[in-house]
Amino acid sequence: MANQVTATRRPAQSGRDTSARNVKLAVLPPAERISLRAPAGAVEALSRALGLALPVRPCTSATAEGRTALWLGPDEWLVLDEKGGDLLAACAGVEALHSAVGISHRNVAIAVTGPGAETTISAGCPRDLALEAFSVGACARTVLGKIEIVLLRTGEEAFRVECWRSFSDYAFTFLDDAARDAAS
């Protein structure tokens, strides 16, 4: 009885990008995401199911096959799959105690790249982002201006900024403003 209307997806800030002299900003395409919560005893089983070793050291991440797990708290990971892999399905078979909740649509990701990337984010993020303090692969939930973000360093001059959907306009506008200052 259902008629065959299929809803089209309209991601927030889709395709928005900008480049200043030292910095490029780009809203990244949608990714699969789960918020994964589990006690230490379930880490091994979940790692096996997801195909990557869930990091247990604070503020570190692990990547394999387009899949990245970010340590956000002692029992919390943000797991991303940029190849469309079904993360909920991957965890569904795990018997060990855990909670996997789909949040693919909750977050929007913005790539900040270039020699001025660190300076751009430092306009609103109080953490020390020097390579020595926040190396490639480091990640953290933190703040950017007046919003909360998850920050992942994907390269020496590259960051991934994740925020909630309704804050993505603010995040992009803020980074854009900061990028212009970083270029000046």
Binding site: K146, F167, D177
Partner: peptide, 15 residues
């Protein structure tokens, strides 16, 4: 600083 105009406070909009 940056917190003027649209950056004074986040404006949240639904889908």
């Amino acid at each position: 600083g940056h917190a003027r105009g649209p950056l004074f406070d986040p404006t949240r909009r639904t889908a």
